[in-house]
Design a protein around this nucleic acid. Structure first.
Length: 396
RNA sequence: GCGUCGGUGGCAGAGUGGUCAAUUGCAAUUGGCUGUAAACCAAUCGCCUUCGGGCUACGGGGGUUCGAAUCCCUCCCGGCGCA
């Protein structure tokens, strides 16, 4: 893998670049659709490609459980297995430590909308009996499969082995995504663990002489000291690129991202994990992020929430049942070019499978194109103007 | 005409003397979704309300009872059977 910065935003950390992998080129900043189980839900690889997508991201934990990483390896790797000819990346399973662990059944997401001190857990109470499918052990994480209840112990080494079998161009170190609700003491403890795990991932990966690029993940929550410390430590481990992971608060997300980008080596790519609402894309790019993956466009698309230049709309709202005007004037995606909101509303109400497909197509097109336009604005030297123009319409 | 079973909120369908403005499902209305336990989840869903409560409701009318969607009488409507 190679990465080259083409142009930077004046006086900012942001840049446009080109990432070259064995399976093709990615123009950054880029949006990376999520294909957890080797499928971008509701879409064929051809549709995904036609939307302008250059790279997709699969998931270690999910593919390990089903169909099994060896099946994927024997099929020629994740790209070949899923019929995607371009570059691929896999997440390490670190997010499942969070989503199936501390966040399990609690409705906690990785982005907090409001910073409310009362929401913070003052002291990590003993909730070891709380139902959860992931538990952190001595040197790894014990998962109870959501599919059949079987127990699986994933260590950093195991995550890397699985990812070697999955064979994506870019893989991630096994980390612990920490809940935004955790107190500082726990953040520190988890951060040290993530650093130890990162080192182990790096050591094993290097010993295997893999052609795959390994990205280390910076954690540290919303704490400046921890974030900077993490960025320094992770940059010193010889990774090929970096992930920025963990907990964020909507209103100050840019701070951790900036702190980290200022420290990470400029010549290596940075990927913010699991972030991808339109405003966040501008925030990330401005603060030095090259790659974004996020389930939001596809999940929202399947659930009836569609992006438009004037903000998100819920196609299930009564007013759309008869609307024949364009949902998002100027949008030239396959859905907007060929169908009416009324039709899509009907498909959703009728629970037709095509609803999720058309919703995903529109949303992915919206996000991928937005990032493309952001990239172009960097090359044109008009990023800040573009950001401002977009925000004025989108927020109304 | 006789017999019989039934008529409950937009629909389906529970309830069969008080805890019933009435279980549940669907529909409807609205909200949410950020490294996917997610083609998902949540709230609302008779009218009014100063959110304490008030009012009108289980085909119509009448009755029994302290109290009726629930019991009785009668009328109307529907299914089935027999003429």
């Amino acid at each position: 893998m190679q990465f080259k910065v083409e142009k930077k935003i004046k006086d900012k950390l942001g840049r446009a670049g080109v990432l070259t992998t064995a399976h093709g080129v990615v123009h950054t900043p880029a949006f990376v659709p999520v294909a957890t189980k080797a499928a971008v839900k509701a879409l064929t690889p051809e549709m995904v490609r036609d939307l302008g997508v250059e790279i997709v991201l699969g998931n270690t934990y999910h593919l390990y459980l089903q169909p099994g990483d060896e099946v994927v390896r024997d099929a020629g790797g994740i790209g070949k297995f899923m019929g995607w000819r371009g570059p691929t990346m896999t997440d390490s399973g670190g997010f499942q430590v969070f989503s199936l662990g501390a966040a399990y059944g609690k409705g906690i997401s990785k982005v907090l909308e409001v910073t409310d001190p009362s929401l913070m857990i003052p002291e990590r109470f003993d909730d070891s009996d709380a139902p959860r499918l992931a538990k952190i052990g001595a040197d790894g994480v014990s998962f109870k499969s959501h599919l059949d209840g079987s127990i699986h112990y994933i260590t950093p080494e195991k995550s890397i082995e699985i990812q070697h079998n999955l064979g994506a161009d870019i893989i991630f170190a096994f980390d612990e995504c920490v809940s935004p609700m955790e107190e500082t003491k726990y953040q520190e403890e988890a951060l040290e663990r993530t650093h130890r795990w990162a080192e182990r991932c790096s050591v094993l990966h290097k010993s295997k002489n893999s052609q795959q690029a390994l990205f280390g993940i910076v954690q540290g929550g919303r704490d400046e000291k921890l974030r900077k410390q993490s960025a320094k430590i992770i940059s010193g481990m010889g990774f090929d690129g970096f992930g920025i992971g963990g907990s964020f608060a909507k209103e100050d997300m840019q701070d951790p991202v900036r702190w980290v980008s200022e420290i990470l080596p400029e010549e290596k790519p940075r990927h913010i994990l699991g972030i991808g609402e339109p405003e966040d894309l501008f925030m990330g790019v401005e603060n030095g992020v090259d790659l974004f993956d996020c389930v939001a466009p596809t999940r929202n698309g399947r659930n009836g929430t569609l992006y438009t230049k004037r903000g998100k709309v819920n196609i299930m709202n009564a007013k759309y049942t008869t609307m024949r005007d364009s949902l998002d004037p100027g949008c030239s995606c396959y859905f907007c070019s060929n169908f009416t909101p009324s039709y899509l509303a009907h498909l959703f109400r009728g629970k037709e499978m095509l609803a999720g497909t058309l919703g995903s197509i529109h949303n992915l097109y919206f996000i991928v194109n937005l990032v493309k336009n952001i990239r172009q604005s960097i090359l044109d030297g008009s990023f800040l103007e573009f950001k401002k123009e977009f925000a004025i319409l989108y927020r109304n």
